[in-house]
Design a binder for these strands. Sequence first.
DNA 1: ATGACGCATCGAATGCGA
Length: 258
Amino acid sequence: MKLSTWNVNSLTARLQHVLDWTAANPVDVLCLQELKLTDDKFPLDAIRAAGYPHCAVFGQKTYNGVAIMSREPLHEIVRNISGYADEHSRVIAATLASPAGELRLVNGYFVNGQALGTPKFDYKMSWLRGLRDYLREELALHERLMLLGDFNIVPEDRDSFDPEGLRETIHHTTEERDHFRRLLELGLVDSFRLFEQPEKSYSWWDYRMLGYPKNRGLRIDHILVSDSLKLQVKACTIDRAPRKWEKPSDHAPVIVEI
DNA sequence: ATGACGCATCGAATGCGA
């Protein structure tokens, strides 16, 4: 079974890429972030026709918006972080059957945070605390849980093209990395690092300044799995192929196999 | 260098992303 996550930077602008990518990579689940559209504009028909009849959508106009596309039925769909009031559509959770048993998925578009010392950074910190409290409860209810999405956090120096130059700047701050580590301490593991990976593996590249051709990227899209799932993970990869297509998203999909 | 590039917005200049 293959599950994946992809920040598409507008589903309207990227629908054809989603259809092309799933045709070439017939994953069982695709978690989307940054839909930038309302629920009524979600292209259900096209996505159903592509082999994903089960969709859980939490959209928003202009910004944010997340969804889970699935070949198999989704249950217990929850929008937003329970216990944390948020005006943004950033989190959607659902349960589905997997070979290992019932699997809880939490799909998140984490706050960007702009810069240390700004109100947006404070929002990021409080949002991350809310997410952690929520996940603690979810993990108590669901032994097999997967947290997928655009974390907007570079976990370690090796996940950045310029860890020295960008030290303590957004995505690289100690505060953000502490939050990432605290998520792991809840009983989650970064599935990408369960395997040997090529050096300079990234999931996002700036549109500007030839970011992708120069591989000036960051690894900020992650798939964390709960400890009881750890032994079942067979692979985790980043697919850079769609970043080379015309009018690409600035993010690449991440895929996990269990 | 607060810009570049791309997307969205009642329509052009601006907010936002990372």
